[in-house]
Design a protein around this nucleic acid. Structure first.
Lengths: 239, 239
DNA sequence: ATAATAGTGTCTTTTAGACAATATCAC
DNA sequence: GTGATATTGTCTAAAAGACACTATTAT
């Protein structure tokens, strides 16, 4: 095995790769989980839905590239919410034209305005995840999307990440609807309320209340400092 | 912003990167968690400890490259245990010589023989993690190692991965010592026993018992089909 | 016998989940 | 008023953790 030069970095030891970032950007609209997808304008997979993404620039950090793409595709200069690395996909022929390694990022954002076509966010749109999953996405993006969904669903169990789907202030029922949309289940409003208000550091009372339709006015909270949920909020024993 | 060619793949749109895999390979020896480290023979960081790794070949999948490196560095043709992607590290100047994106993998293995110097596994050695963490590792490998350790510790809570540190058959106390070594805590042998034997699918009784020193002979198990631990085995409320 | 490890039983506390009951709004 | 949502309280069952106790070995 002559694979390894003694750290000499001879060109033949490091074939050139293109590196891209792809985004699994999720939001909750109308109590339904949506993913940001673009329609490809060029071959391969012309006309097919795909995850937004693009090449990493020569002097750009990976997370910066992901944040830049997210801003470009949503049309929002600085997207609020949460951004984390999801995984890297580098099968030799995942892109038919060249060797491309894609670093996928998971973004969780509160409801954003629809991307405006014609701006830099060209063909991007928020698509219900049920629709996205049943579309035949380009490349290996179906797998990436599925991995991102599972990551998001799992992390809601043991972290405070659900607040990343909410605006700066929100009610308990808003937060509950996030959980219900992401997990696709119904949760008992009473037990949910007791759980989240009883978790130290998760919610900060703003002192305000808000009325929205019939029913008792709801207390308005902002996200607290807690990042972990301990004990977690489990989804396993559900239906 | 002219960053995006319309999917034309013009060379100027995709700067060339080198792609490597780095390994956080962990094992338990003498009831202590160890990581596999190599001593760098060349600049930069000559003489410094580093994670084992190397370039991904032009036609090689990322996970295959990680498995190949692991086999080469341990001197074991097919390393048993568990291998999963950990994360990708691609800060622009993490390698002073060129733009290198490294896909880190986490490997959990049962106790392996010491790598033999002179073979393809040149300078590799199993180092106690306490030592590894207090060494000044090359590149950003301290961060990668810390991330790998945290991943391993977290996953023992809610998966059956601890069995990846064990030989094909093992006793409950062996499994417990894995947990104790990885988490660096002491666990109550009685509660641990009840927990793991009471988790369906985690352990399969081989019907054998083994005596090892004084004390009642221990039942010998093999890993069962369960991959998740539900409910989990938590480490949070410990000291 | 003594020490050591394996394994079982029991008790207390915490928490999840079911669900009754109350509070406050729109209509 | 009725119906809807918010919030609190109560009960039961599951599980964690503490720890007494039994079983079986080496010495």
């Amino acid at each position: 095995m002559s694979r390894r030069a003694p750290e000499g970095y001879r060109p033949e030891d490091h074939p050139a790769f293109a590196v891209t970032v792809d985004l699994v950007a999720l939001t909750v609209r109308d109590d339904e989980l949506h993913a940001l997808l673009v329609t490809r304008a060029e071959d391969p997979f012309r006309g097919r839905l795909a995850l937004p993404g693009g090449f990493v620039r020569a002097d750009e950090d990976l997370a910066d590239a992901a944040a830049r793409e997210l801003a470009e595709e949503t049309g929002v200069r600085r997207v609020p919410g949460h951004l984390e690395q999801l995984g890297t996909y580098g099968a030799p022929r995942r892109d038919p034209r060249m060797r491309v390694v894609s670093v996928a990022y998971l973004a969780l954002a509160p409801e954003l305005p629809d991307p405006v076509a014609g701006s830099d966010a060209r063909e991007a749109a928020w698509v219900p995840v049920a629709t996205a999953l049943s579309s035949r996405l380009a490349f290996d993006h179906a797998r990436i999307l599925a991995d991102g969904l599972e990551r998001a669903r799992a992390k809601l169990e043991y972290t405070a990440l659900a607040t990343a789907f909410c605006p700066p202030t929100f009610t308990v029922s808003r937060l509950r609807r996030v959980y219900e949309a992401v997990w696709g289940v119904g949760l008992d409003p009473r037990n949910f309320h007791r759980k989240v208000t009883g978790t130290a550091g998760l919610l900060e009372d703003t002192g305000e209340v808000v009325v929205d339709g019939p029913g008792r006015p709801a207390t308005v909270y902002r996200a607290g400092s807690a990042t972990e949920l301990n004990p977690p909020l489990t989804r396993d024993r559900l239906s």
